[in-house]
């Protein structure tokens, strides 16, 4: 009886929803890029808020614009996933505080101007002169720069808040979906935020940062990875202590079809190995290598991919 109810209430029924596995490559790509941008915003703005007097490298100054580009790529993937593409404006006709999707739509709208102002305020004097020399840009840019400079700390703080919101919501979006036991855990929001911080840090480490920035980013990356490992452990424990459907979700990652991808790509290659490399690198003052960041980025993408695919296969259907 319970099983039949579930089939009706969660619509896990091929006769009602003809497609039970509806999300393809677009959603993991979006979730990955969204998390990465969240990490970039938090770390970039956080560094300046914590150390306002330090000079910043070119890479860190250009970071907000990179974040905008990456987020646009993610949004494009998201747009490609929409079945009714022309209906996208409807997200912005309402705000439902109980819906993470609604929160996400508005957060995304907030990120664009904030990241843009963050970036504009980071331009060097030389870059500003070059841009202001263009007559077409000057009337618009001059007041914008003045405002971005005056409200710099407010912009940076909003940037951190927008980043936190973006990172959290990508996980909460899945976590609130009761129909999928694999996703229906409150851990997913903080987990995706921690992973976003770590991938954002890894992305920054691919570029030439100065020594203090590098230290700052690596320190935060190590912390984010440790938190992510803890949260992954909590997620698995939560599944183990849950009902049969949750235990089946655990089986997906512990013996089931996504075991090797989860443990090899996400946990081992995506977290433990780069963590060890960063710790050893810090202790021995080894020169910067691209391998650890590349592994973190691949691992962050694998985390979303595995959870997306395994989540779509998890349901209450097997438990009548």
């Amino acid at each position: 009886m319970t099983g039949n109810l579930e089939v009706v209430t969660t619509r896990h029924n091929a006769a009602i929803d003809p497609v039970l596995s509806a999300w393809g490559w677009e959603i993991p790509v979006y979730l990955f890029l969204g998390g990465l941008v969240a990490g970039l915003l938090i770390l970039g703005a956080g560094y300046e808020l914590l150390h306002p007097d330090r000079p910043r490298s070119r890479a860190l100054r250009a970071m907000p614009f990179a974040a905008l580009g990456l987020l646009s790529l993610g949004m494009l993937a998201l747009f490609l996933d929409l079945a009714h593409k022309l209906h996208v404006y409807r997200f912005y006709l309402a705000f439902r505080w109980t819906s993470p999707m609604s929160w996400g739509s508005w957060i995304l709208l907030l990120v664009y101007p904030v990241a843009f102002l963050h970036g504009v305020g980071s331009l060097t004097a030389g870059q500003r002169e070059t841009l202001l020399a263009r007559r077409a840009l000057a009337p618009l840019l001059r007041p914008l720069l003045r405002w971005a400079d005056r409200a710099r700390r407010a912009v940076l703080k909003t940037s951190v808040v927008a980043g936190l919101g973006l990172g959290l919501y990508t996980g909460l979006l899945l976590g609130t979906l009761a129909a999928r036991p694999q996703w229906n855990t409150a851990v997913l929001g903080p987990l995706f935020l921690a992973s976003g911080l770590s991938t954002g840090a890894a992305f920054l480490l691919l570029f030439r940062l100065d020594e203090r920035e590098h230290d700052f980013v690596v320190r935060w990356d190590v912390g984010a990875i440790l938190v992510e490992l803890l949260l992954l452990g909590a997620m698995l424990l939560g599944f183990a202590a849950g009902d049969r459907s949750a235990q089946h979700a655990l089986y997906h990652l512990m013996g089931g079809p996504w075991t090797s991808a989860f443990w090899s790509l996400v946990v081992f290659a995506g977290l433990l190995v780069p963590l060890a490399m960063e710790l050893i690198g810090r202790r021995r003052r080894l020169p910067l290598a691209a391998l650890a960041p590349a592994l973190i980025l691949a691992g962050g993408f694998a985390l979303r991919w595995v959870l997306l695919v395994a989540g779509q296969a998890s349901s209450f259907r097997e438990f009548p």
């Binding site: 006769a15 003809p18 509806a22 998201l78 996933d81």
Partner: peptide
């Protein structure tokens, strides 16, 4: 009742 839909259910952001 079977309600045929489009080839793919989209949504989510």
């Amino acid at each position: 009742r079977v309600q045929p839909r489009g080839p793919k259910k989209g949504g989510g952001c």
